[in-house]
Design a protein around this nucleic acid. Sequence first.
DNA 1: AACGACGTCAACCGCCAGTAG
DNA 2: ACTACTGGCGGTTGACGTCGT
Length: 269
Amino acid sequence: MARTPSCDKSGMRKGTWTAEEDRKLIAYVSRYGCWNWRQLPKFAGLSRCGKSCRLRWMNYLRPNLKRGNFTQQEEELIIRMHKKLGNRWSTIAAQLPGRTDNEVKNHWHTSLKKRVQHNTITNIEETKSRDIAISQVAIPASSQDTNGPLSPILSSSEFSSTSYSDQSSTHDLDDFGFLDGFIESMDQSFWLDDLSTIVQDNTSCAFQNQDTSLVSPSHSSNESNLVLDNDFSSFLDSYQESTVDSFWTQSFETDMSHVLYNQQWGCLE
DNA sequence: AACGACGTCAACCGCCAGTAG
DNA sequence: ACTACTGGCGGTTGACGTCGT
């Protein structure tokens, strides 16, 4: 899924991010936080615009992102919320821990939209044929089965009345309070099921420790180099998983000691 | 094997709201 | 009140993968 790297008029790189750029961005944000996206590329040694850095971080690099296929629960939640909210992807994504608005939006356009449209058409056809049947056989409406499955995948309206019947049966369609309970009912393991690799404790900050000033006695330079030599994507998985609990609670250094960092990367004169 | 059609998704673009000066 | 700047959002693009012929 790589785009051909290119540069815009101002010399900023565009297109696919390289592993090296990812490393620099992770290293910088992990250490100093994102205090100003516009200024960040300069200090992090990246030839990217701040917007591009922010997007890369938010959609791909930041910890606690859940990658991989959407679960049926997630898909049903997206369908239901989209029916209610429309294309408010960030709001919808906020209800799906570990998912980005971009990811939700892409999944909607590539998969869920067609499914919903198909179900809508199927629903109309089912309704028509049922109406005909009703008109031909005068059965009291109350005895009609209106809840039969129309397809293996539930439509959004069915979802509201079946999948989470315990919650939704007691809530109006306009009441989204049940979503909170729905999310809360899922423990941490649910959201992390797709994260495959268990990371050794001493790997968690190995990347940051490339700054030799930060290398603890327990980390030899060989260990740090090992991280650099390994496949970057697997490192990224490890990095993201290992920082799930601690990342957002850690306090970033707010002084301007990026100079130390940049000396390590050689990106400042 | 070659080709085109279609699907996927990372990344870009333009707009807008919030905020500081 | 106005301007400039920034972050965030949603729409769109386009490179690459997959599938069918």
